[in-house]
């Protein structure tokens, strides 16, 4: 399959390793990956913060860039959630029926990585090797917006060498919430504190998730506390093999 990588601005700028892992993984599974360079940002940060007018050109851009793609896959449940949940509302706000049609048309072809692999391609074992103790944090948007269910866990369970440990109170939000983490830094930290306690309690050396945004927040506290736990994106674990480890 020809897969267009929707890297997201956040991963493009801050987490290039996740993007590289996406390419390695999808190519290893026998697909062709292209990366349309005209892509920028899905507009989630603007939309969720209330700068919704600013989102209109970004939605236009997205459908122009990805409109013809066979499948659009992103290493971010949150950004895919933005496309699926709010793009039609942005089109409505723009008062542009043509844009609304284009959005409706592209949405069924936009996927988050784990749902794409498990639900679209029907792959449960990607042939990865990752000899580490890992706990998995299911991000809110992967759970409650995309409803990926246990797709990420199915993939992780089939990774060779992995020691996967269950995270207590896993479904509780980590407290990131985009600009919430700055605007309501104290409440955000109170939420993160409990998440960190649960992660450390598992004895894992790696905390994995389907969103680097949440992982940046979780990882920021793990690092500050010198906890010895590393945040790693799901794609990077799935891309690992005996050769790369």
């Amino acid at each position: 399959m020809q897969i267009s990588l929707f890297i997201t601005c956040f991963n493009d700028t801050l987490f290039p390793e996740t993007g590289k892992a996406m390419v390695q993984l999808l190519e290893r599974l026998g697909h062709q990956v292209d990366f349309p360079l005209e892509q920028t940002c899905c507009g989630q940060m603007h939309y969720n913060t209330g700068y919704q007018e600013e989102t209109i050109p970004l939605v236009r851009r997205f459908v122009e860039v990805f409109g013809e793609a066979e499948a659009v896959v992103a290493p971010s449940a949150s950004c895919v959630g933005m496309v699926r949940e709010f793009y039609s509302k942005v089109a409505e706000r723009a008062g542009d029926p043509e844009l609304a049609n284009a959005v409706e048309e592209v949405i069924p072809r936009v996927f988050e990585l784990s749902e794409f692999l498990v639900k679209e391609l029907g792959i449960e074992d990607v042939g990865a090797y990752y000899p580490h103790r890992v706990t998995y944090h299911p991000t809110c948007h992967s759970l409650r917006v995309l409803h990926v269910g246990d797709a990420p866990l199915i993939l992780l369970r089939n990774v060779r060498g992995i020691d996967l440990v269950e995270l207590p109170a896993a479904e509780q939000c980590c407290g990131f919430g985009g600009t919430f983490a700055v605007k309501n830094a104290d409440t955000s930290m109170a939420m993160l504190g409990d998440k960190i306690r649960h992660i450390k309690g598992t004895g894992a050396e790696v905390c994995a998730a389907a969103d680097n945004s949440c992982l940046m927040h979780i990882g920021g506290a793990l690092k500050r506390q010198r906890s010895g736990v590393e945040p790693v994106h799901l794609a990077e674990i799935l891309a690992s093999t005996e050769e790369t480890e």
Partner: peptide, 19 residues
């Protein structure tokens, strides 16, 4: 508000698109 309680990962030398 971010760095009061969390470290922030710096932007790496190469973006994904550069790679």
């Amino acid at each position: 508000g971010w760095t009061a309680m969390r470290d922030l990962k710096p932007i790496p030398k190469q973006t994904f698109r550069e790679w």
